[in-house]
Design a protein around this nucleic acid. Structure first.
Ligand code: FES
Ligand code: FES
Lengths: 144, 144
DNA sequence: TATTTTACTACTAGGATAATAGGAATTGCA
DNA sequence: TGCAATTCCTATTATCCTAGTAGTAAAATA
């Protein structure tokens, strides 16, 4: 399951994708109200997305947030990874943040890993294969 | 990510699959030692698996645990669902425990659901498509 | 009846989640 | 220059979840 934070982040990103334009800065307040996300919580999320180069921010009057790249070039998986961590089901099958499984007796002959690896690949294929732009016009008819 | 509990459960189930036989009862202690799982914790896990008809138990001397069905008929996803909950990334995309997403403004026109639905289907295809028997002999060459 | 083994109930330490609060820093405008 | 808007930063909090541990009861067998 995604965390609320992860869902908020994805919804905010899709909102920015929907309102994406050359010099179009969107206010945190606007996103918070439109998507019913607690404002202060959303601010923290946007800062994390900024630190990970998903969004760009501008302070002061006429400030706000916008996507760092075109919505077509940002995958749903990119946003989720930043906020909720790796898509994989175990450290040993993560491609972006690989690590050892401390609780597996002998990782070299682990019987779980092959399946979990396939599961990760399947999840990543879907989440990385759908950009924010895809999500924007996916209501009712999701893309491949 | 799976929880440790979920991984323990899957490892225990694979152990039982590897030692599956007509009247072959395996001790919790044996599994715990072989898989380096805290014994008391494993007992609690096995009770949950029993309550959900994944394993069958027998008390007293010569007691123990065994799979309720042939290893070929139990999917990896079945075990994970019991211990870690739905495979889906959101309540709205769960097939086994569907529920509303309280934090989505209007679920009827949710832009996230189509992709998340595909993600769930992809995960479920892998995890339900691989039985415990598949896992047993999957070291190094995972099955389709 | 003694021993083995599962079953049940209760408890705990630590960490993660989902926020909230208050103010500092920056920018634009009058 | 000063004010207002807006992001940014640093705590703090309540609640739940995770990963166990401890002790005992119940059942089956020899
Ligand atoms: S080594 Fe990662 S699940 Fe076994
Ligand atoms: S309704 Fe479930 S993610 Fe929007």
């Amino acid at each position: 399951m995604l965390t609320s934070k992860g869902k908020y982040a994805l919804r905010a990103a899709v909102y920015l994708a929907r309102h994406h334009g050359a010099e179009n800065w969107t206010l945190a307040t606007e996103i918070a109200e439109a998507e019913a996300i607690p404002k202060k919580f959303l601010e923290a999320i946007l800062v994390e997305l900024r630190d990970n180069h998903i969004v760009t921010s501008r302070r002061g009057r006429n400030g706000g947030y916008r996507l760092s790249q075109a919505p077509e070039r940002i995958g749903a998986g990119d946003v989720i990874r930043v906020i909720d961590g790796p898509l994989a089901l175990t450290p040993c099958t993560s491609r972006t943040q690989p690590g050892p499984c401390h609780d597996c007796v002998d990782p070299a002959i682990c019987t779980l890993r092959p399946v979990l690896q396939k599961a990760r690949d399947a999840i990543a294929a879907v989440l990385d294969g759908n950009s924010l732009a895809d999500l924007v016009d996916s209501v009712g008819h999701s893309a491949g």
